[in-house]
Design a protein around this nucleic acid. Sequence first.
DNA 1: AACACGGGGAC
DNA 2: GTCCCAGTGTT
Length: 344
Amino acid sequence: MINWYKKNKRDLPWRKNITSKDYAYKVMVSEFMLQQTTVSTVIPYFNKFIKKWPSIKKLSKANLDEVLLSWQGLGYYTRAKNLLKTSNFVCNQHNAIVPSSLKKLKELPGIGDYSAAAIRSIGYNKKAVAVDGNVKRVIARYYGLKGTLKDNSEIINQIALRICPDRSNRVYTQAIMELGAIICKPRKYDCKKCCLKKNCRSYKQNIVHLIPSKKIKLYKEKLNCISFLIVDQHKSVLMKKREDTKLLANQWELPSTNWVKKPPKFSKICTPFPKSNWKNTNFRLKHIFSHLELENVVYISEKKIGGKSKNFKNFEWIDNCNLKKIVVTTMTKKILKKFNLVQT
DNA sequence: AACACGGGGAC
DNA sequence: GTCCCAGTGTT
């Protein structure tokens, strides 16, 4: 497997300059970004992030809005918050050196079992057992473990510990993950090319397609809302900042109704400017989150001079130029794009 | 042990 | 449409 990896490994930006002083920091940043996120999605974000904050000391001087802006579109925004917290903690408590012990790594916000092991192994080449989704799948197939990954999590962790080598841990950790990502993929796996096929139980028994078995799908709540797009005479858009907790924390979005099960009926009284002339755009946007679906109907209006608004708490008129400087939810971004108020 | 937390890519 | 991705924190 190691030989296969050395020959076939991908040229990923966080694998460069292993000897540089900031290498462990870069590995840490990559591990935050890679949580539940594919490599191809992460690469451009990682490059931009490291260009802006090449060292942990520089990152620790950033403010949250800046970090969230560079995270915009990547999802799971608590990661950005935790990464900033962690960099501050490391600068204050660990002399700006990313720790290499599992215990100290796991004290850092946003770093759990997997990330601690990955940073120790990939960042410092010290022994650690990093078990991510790829590793679980490779082990489950190689040992022919039927059932879901969750059913087998205990035994998978035991095996992972047993087969983890003491030496060259950095290469091993990446090799087994890379095998899962390139060859032993969830679908369209390529067993013919797999260096482990000789002893792979599910390959020999021809049950690769059954392993791991799918986890039962959970019901996704379907919600609805109306968003209000209002532009003033200077082409500024009225935006609202979300609360700093929970979903899409601290991000800006169009003013909108609550998210409710039954599609809300339009009424001027729910709009930010009840006296304006609101029109249904007939534009509907379905947005999928990990745990719910939201169907968004967009109403549009131009602000009348002298029109009064109801409640300006957390509301602000944002001009076109400043729209790209604030963190906007992906959903609102799509709406603004549809009405040619933002590029890209 | 179950749920909250994004968004996109592959099929 | 479905699955799932270099998971973590909260309840």
